[in-house]
Amino acid sequence: MDMLSLIIKFGIYGTMALALIAAIAVVTLRNLFHSALCLAAVLIATAMIYAAFHADFLAAAQILLYVGAVMTLIIFAIMLTEQLGSKTIRQTNRQNLAALAGLLVFVVILGRVIFKTPWPVTEKALASKVTVMELGKAFMGPYVFPFEVISIILIAALLGAVVIAKKDR
């Protein structure tokens, strides 16, 4: 294995570790603002993992939508509501030890299953790369139905959001 691929491999594992650590921080930190920043780190790390696996479009969309739009919105919401920005909240309840034990059992079982399964990884699958043009053609071709369904879901969600957020007449 040459130097470059070794570095890439370490880079990918490092990014995954970063994503995991930041994710744990999101649910353990007591300050809401710090949690939000860590969430942004998780999302950026995920985008990097996508990019490393040749899912360029997904990575770009992740950065644009989640980091660019959703996170900005969350951070603005926290900063605008003053009491929330500086408040510290405990994120665990009294059952956290039991939950942790359950989680460990779960992780061990899942880990064993994942390592035992012969995942169908082929050279062809590893080399495959989906371009934006192919994605667009797929959306307008075979995948047109789910694509249109998503647009209807968005309209329904939008209408519902307006009903809930609107001031009463």
Binding site: P146, V149, I150, I152, I153, A156, A157
Partner: peptide, 10 residues
Amino acid sequence: FLSVEFLSLL
């Protein structure tokens, strides 16, 4: 996934 989420959302 899409349809079950649509149902839940509504």
